[in-house]
């Protein structure tokens, strides 16, 4: 099984630790992983701003980089959702479709494809799990509080394999953090308020770390935590699952 590692642009630039953990975790699980060096971005920032028509270049580049892999895995629900829903190329639509079907968010890849049953990780801390909306409501990696349906969580089932971890409960289990791509600057007041409220929920329940499947949400909450001088840290779920010493 050959897996192409898709690292979102802001993770590449600002959070290499999350990307390294993803790579190491997949390697540990015996997966043949390669990171195509020519990758940049999936095009989501433009598309969500109404400029999907400018994403042809990104799409073409994405197909060029990831064509031929058995699976494409990324430590991001949001970017994967964008590729799944919006990657098109009129000159090679069959390839685009192939990629749309093969791209996976990391935790789903671990639970559904690798069917991971145990992980040699230890993390003896109180952790708040942030449900990033695009992974949850877009890719259905967890059940959603609005729907009348059985409850489940793919990332939650993986965190449950980590020794010593204590997942704290939350008042609002799946409220959006307010990052929202360019929303975070275009609607600064509401975005920051949403983030503060989300953080307060985690802090109120004694979280020492906040984790999730999307570094973008975590970057937003980290920015707010740091500003208020909090010692609470954010960690991508890959870093916890990979085992931090």
């Amino acid at each position: 099984m050959r897996v192409g590692l898709f690292i979102p642009c802001y993770v590449d630039q600002f959070y290499p630790g999350a990307a390294i953990a993803t790579l190491q975790l997949l390697e540990k699980l015996g997966v043949d992983v390669a990171y195509p060096a020519g990758q940049t971005c999936c095009g989501q920032p433009m598309a969500n701003s109404g400029f999907e028509h400018l994403t042809h270049g990104c799409n073409e580049l994405f197909i060029k980089n990831f064509d031929g892999f058995d699976y494409i895995v990324a430590p991001s629900g949001s970017c994967v959702l964008h590729v799944r829903d919006h990657l098109h190329d009129e000159h090679q639509e069959d390839k685009a479709k192939d990629i749309r079907d093969k791209v996976y968010e990391l935790t789903t890849f671990l639970t559904d494809i690798l069917k991971v049953k145990s992980l040699p990780a230890k993390f003896p801390y109180k952790v708040g799990m942030h449900q990033s909306c695009h992974g949850q409501r877009g890719l259905h990696i967890s059940s959603m509080s609005e729907l009348v349906a059985p409850s489940f969580s793919k990332p939650g089932s993986l965190l449950a394999m980590v020794e010593g971890i204590d997942i704290v409960p939350l008042n609002r289990i799946d409220e959006c953090c307010g990052f929202g791509g360019t929303f975070c600057v275009a609607e600064e007041a509401v975005s920051a308020k949403m983030g503060k409220d989300r953080i307060d929920d985690h802090l109120e329940h004694g979280a020492e770390y906040i984790t999730g499947v999307d570094m973008s949400c975590l970057m937003h909450m980290e920015g707010l935590l740091k500003r208020r001088g909090s010692k609470v840290k954010v960690l991508h779920i890959a870093e916890i699952l990979n085992g931090i010493n």
Partner: peptide, 13 residues
């Protein structure tokens, strides 16, 4: 209202 992420020494790439 938010701090910037700490700049890493190098990118993942």
């Amino acid at each position: 209202q938010r701090d910037m992420p700490e700049p890493p020494k190098e990118s993942f790439g």
